[in-house]
Each structure stands twice: as C-alpha cells, then as structure tokens.
Simulated assay, not measured.
Amino acid sequence: MGDLYRKFKPHLLMFLTQIGYTFLYFITEASFNHGMNPNVYITYRHIVAGVVMFPFAYFLERKQRPPLTIALFAEIFVLSLLGVGLTLNMYFVSLTYTSPTFVASVVNTIAALTFVIAIVLRLESLDLRNPRGMAKLVGTLVSLAGVMTMTLYRGPIIKNLGPPLVHIHAKTAGQLGGWLKGSILAVASCVSWSIWYIMQALTLKRYPAQLSLTTWMSFVGAAQSAVFTVIIHHDRAAWTIGINIDLWSTIYGGVVISGLVVFIQLWCTEEKGPVFVTMFNPFGTVLVAILAYFVLGERLYVGSVLGAIIVIIGLYLLLWGKEGDKRIHTQEQSPAAPDEEKDNIIHIVASAERKITPGEP
C-alpha cells in the first residue's frame, strides 16, 4: 500500500487541488450574491495571501532572494497589474454575470491563448510538418472555437432533474446582455492571464525566488486593486465585512487556494512536470458542472456544455503536442552547453501550462 500511495500521490494531490478550486467558484459566488464587492474581495484576499506567505518567503528564501532594485520593482508592479489588479478583477466580475460552470470552462483556454501569444512574440516554434506541431495548431484552434461557442451560443436550457439541494444561485445572470458582458470579461481576463504567464517566466529569470515573488505580487496587487476599487466605488460600507460568508470566502481564497493549493501544484510540477499538472484542469470543469447542476440547480445551456467539451478536446491535443516538445528538448539539449533561447521557450511554456490563479503562485 505504501508503494501504491507513493506512485499515485501526485495524482491524488492534483485531484484534491481541483476540488479546492471547485469550492472556490461557489463560495465566492455565494459571497457575491450576499453582497460582497468582487473588487473588495480581491483586495482582502491578497492581503491575506501576502500575510500568510510572507514568513515562508522570508525564512525559506533568505539566501537565494536577490536584492530588489527599482527596475525590478517596476517589473513586479507591471506583473502584479497583469496578474492581480487587471486579470482577477475582470475574472471575478465575469462570475457575477455568468456562472461558475462557464468561467471554469473558459479557464481551460489559457494554455491555448498563451501558445498563440508565444508564437506571435516568436518565443514558441511551430513545425507543421511534424504531427505534434500540427496537433498544437489544431488544438489551439479547437480550444478557441470552444470558447467562442460558449460565448456566442447559449442554446436551449438543459432541464434539471429535481429541485436544488442548496440555494445560493439568486442572481439574474440569465439575461443575454449580462451574459455577453460577463463572457467578454472572462475571455479578456484569460488573455491578460496568458500575457502574465509569459512575463512571469521572464521575471523569474531575474528574480528566482518564487515564494518572495508571490508575496510581492500579493501585496502590490492588493494595493492596486484597492486603488481601483476606491476610484470606481465610493461606498465605504462595501469595505466592511462581518463574520459571515464574505469573511470565510476571503480566508478560504487567501489561505487554501493561494497557500496550500499553490504549494501542491509547485510540488507536483517539480515531480511530474507542468504537462501533468495541466492535464487535471478539465476535472475541475467537470466537478463544477456536476455540483452546479445536481446540487445547486444551476441552469445549464447546451452551448455551454458543447463548448466545454470542445475546449477540453482542444486542450488535450495541445498538451499532446507540447509533450513531444518536452521530449525533443530533453534529448537534444546538452548539459555542458545549454541553449539559453530554448531554455527560455521551455520555461515560458511550462509556466503557461500550470493552472494557477494570478497572484497565487
């Protein structure tokens, strides 16, 4: 049993992380329905994340943390803006207009979007004469087609089998205007998320201290989100939260997701590689859909289900192609004389294939 546990330990841990992300969708939606401002939530959540991660970053990376220069801090500021201030505000606001099932499905397109951006920036190679290169192109196009299907086509409602067991879905997200607005925000957040992955990989080359970088992004991102919230919202009451679902969702997002889940993902990435970690993303989508439909009585549309299936198919095609790149890189790269350009490409795409929330890694 011990050998069996050690063999499948990464699989079990990654499945548990998807359960963690599944509850995140619903506890935040319940908090937003209760009246929690999404922008205030992001600010408080990353303050909690920064406070929790600071002691680990300070003691564990004391020797490897490089000095923080003005230029490096400016880079971290932009990185925080992309990863927290901009992306997460669009991401969680989109959740108030759409549904957890839709948002969880759209997140699967981040790997494809990152691949497209890397191609444009010439950070990624694409050999269409190779079957795996063709798989990367087809997988990217299929994933993008899936998210377009979810965004532009809703279709008929799939009837619920019975009354919901839990009632938290009290918003009017079924209106077409709100759904389209939420869809655009969700897709835009994924694009910003993808750019953040690429920039994060480059920043880690100059600041190779992941815990410290995460702590900085949490605090800087929280400050940016606070300024943004103050500008667009003038209600001081929005900053007051009691001992209710708003507090628990903030603590859960900051401690469990930004702390425990990210640690598990980093460990699994080191043990099995980023492709292994990314392969579990669709499980989160399936878990969200099951919980939303059978437990919460959420309205599911044919377009959302069809689009999610298309996205998952495209994701696995892309990952299959990327796995081939990893093997070729391992075989061709010499330990005595590493190719820096290839190393940058692999590191960028590896970071892009990890499913982690900006500001959390």
Rank of each mutant, 00 (worst) to 15 (best):
A111V: 14
S94L: 08
V261A: 03
L95V: 01
K159G: 08
R132A: 15
N344W: 11
K355S: 12
P67Y: 10
Y207V: 07
M134P: 08
Y316T: 01
L126R: 02
I243N: 13
F102Y: 14
A170Y: 08
A30V: 06
T278G: 10
A49P: 00
Y5L: 15
Y91F: 13
Y293S: 00
L204V: 06
G254I: 02
L13T: 04
I195S: 09
A49H: 01
L319C: 05
G297S: 10
K63T: 06
P164S: 01
P55L: 03
M90A: 13
L247F: 12
A222V: 08
W196H: 07
N130F: 09
T240I: 12
D127C: 05
G242C: 13
G182D: 00
V191I: 14
G254D: 06
V78N: 04
K136T: 09
I119K: 08
L16I: 06
F59V: 10
L211I: 02
A71I: 13
I356M: 13
D339Y: 06
W267D: 12
T203N: 13
P10Y: 08
W216E: 00
G35V: 04
L81W: 15
V51L: 12
G359Y: 04
G182Y: 00
I119R: 15
W193C: 08
F280I: 01
V262A: 14
G253L: 09
L300C: 00
V51K: 06
L319K: 12
W239L: 02
S80W: 10
I232M: 09
V187R: 01
M279E: 10
I198Q: 02
G85N: 11
F102P: 05
I158N: 00
E340F: 14
G85P: 05
C190Y: 00
G324V: 10
V230C: 07
G303E: 05
L185W: 01
I157E: 15
A49K: 03
R132E: 09
Q333A: 13
F276G: 09
W193L: 08
H233M: 03
L88Q: 15
N160T: 04
M150K: 09
V230H: 11
V277N: 08
T109R: 00
P164K: 03
E353S: 14
T330H: 15
V295N: 05
W193S: 02
T203H: 15
Q331M: 12
F26S: 00
P164F: 00
P66M: 09
V78Q: 05
V40A: 05
L213F: 11
P131T: 07
P361W: 12
E340Y: 12
E340C: 14
A308Y: 07
H169N: 15
V52A: 14
S304L: 03
S212Q: 07
V295A: 13
K171N: 11
I168F: 10
L128C: 03
V295I: 14
